[in-house]
Write a protein that binds this DNA or RNA. Sequence first.
DNA 1: TCTGGGGTCCTAGGACCC
DNA 2: TCTGGGGTCCTAGGACCC
Length: 446
Amino acid sequence: MSDAGAADAPGPVPPGAPIALVDVNNFYVSCERVFDPSLEGRAVVVLSNNDGCVVARSAEAKALGITTGTPWFQVAPSADRWGLVARSSNYELYGDLSARVMEVIGRFGAWQEVYSIDESFLGLAPGEFRRAEARVVEVAATIREAVARHVGVPVCVGVAPTKTLAKFANHIAKRNAGMRGVCSLGSMPDAEVRRIQSRVPVTGLWGVGARTGARLNALGIESIADLRAADPLAIRKRFSVVLQRTVLELNGVPCIPQADERADKQQIVFSRSFSAPVTRAEEMDQVMAVYAQRGAARLAAQGQRASVLTVTAGTSRFSGGAASFPSASVPLPEPTNDPIRLTKAAVAAMRGRLEPGAAYLRAGVMFSGLSRDVAGGGQELLDVFATGDGDRNVGDLLGNVRAKFGEAAIGLGQGGLAAPASWSMKREFSSPKYTTEWAELPVVRA
DNA sequence: TCTGGGGTCCTAGGACCC
DNA sequence: TCTGGGGTCCTAGGACCC
């Protein structure tokens, strides 16, 4: 421990085996296309909650110059003229298709790490590929075909010795139609790899954002090739251990370990913006009640309890009106996922914190200090005659009723809304929950 | 009129302890 | 000139990711 930096310096993780990064192209748009083939070949965007801004674009929409984060109201007037189609986000559908994609991909790996809703790292078996690099490309192509056949969405596969390079390989596969969605760095001449790396700015790299990019540029490090040639120790001194790992990974030394299998979450957030501003305290009580219950349901589904609750609200960052961003953290007397206690705590925490006259556009409820719910995990069947821990049964009861009759079927107190509140989410262009609701199954005629 | 949501990791600094 | 030297835990903030 005496040599500062040596003990915790990033070292090689398991050596040898190639790592694949598989991700779905334009995931949300591709999901919409699975059940609506008329969207194929068209400019399509998927919008955020409240149909606020663009979060996913088809290749055709990208070609129109539409960028992620563009407010919908700015492009909506031109949509018809451009032949642009919008869909509200349908996370039920995307989540379900994601699970199917991940299952198919997983069949091809010695290990799998699902990195996000649309990407997964995959460990390709070690010895198998030593002899023939061509086999790697073959397997990658097989993965593509399998996902296309079993789920119906297009993926790209990048293969390399480290995660950072696999990400980079995937980036190359995406931008070169001739590669047919597959790029294995090992099958390319090193001179060719370097040539590409010298033309891609550092910010195109996984883990290097705008801030770090600007600082690197100031040192004359502009391309990925520049960063690859930098001295890892100097980078660590000037930046951080994170960027040092990136440099090492660029040089083929694996430093980013596999994430733990299904590690427990450390925080759970339920936050939303409103379709109409909230100004009255009673309305905000209602918001807190609904959000706390939604969060509590997530907690229970994860089999976790919270010991700290944080509430937040905020006015628009774009309108010039009075800005106000109240927030409060309160410790809970004991770790809980009980919707009644959490609802009461959330409503109480926000009381008296609103700026009179401010127009709030968003709010959130966050749970932290999470621990395992040893008592039940929320999975057991409801026993209406059970005595004792009555509180947990309320959560189970709500969960069971919602599972059968839908999210809006039941709620507590202010959260038991018969009709949607004026602030609740707007989703004008939503596709059906084709795969998760019996009532919304697609109908096929032959 | 209308601008998303949910996470992670790392670091620095303060409180506290022996 | 020079005010001990670790160590842990917690928190806030920064940066990044999709």
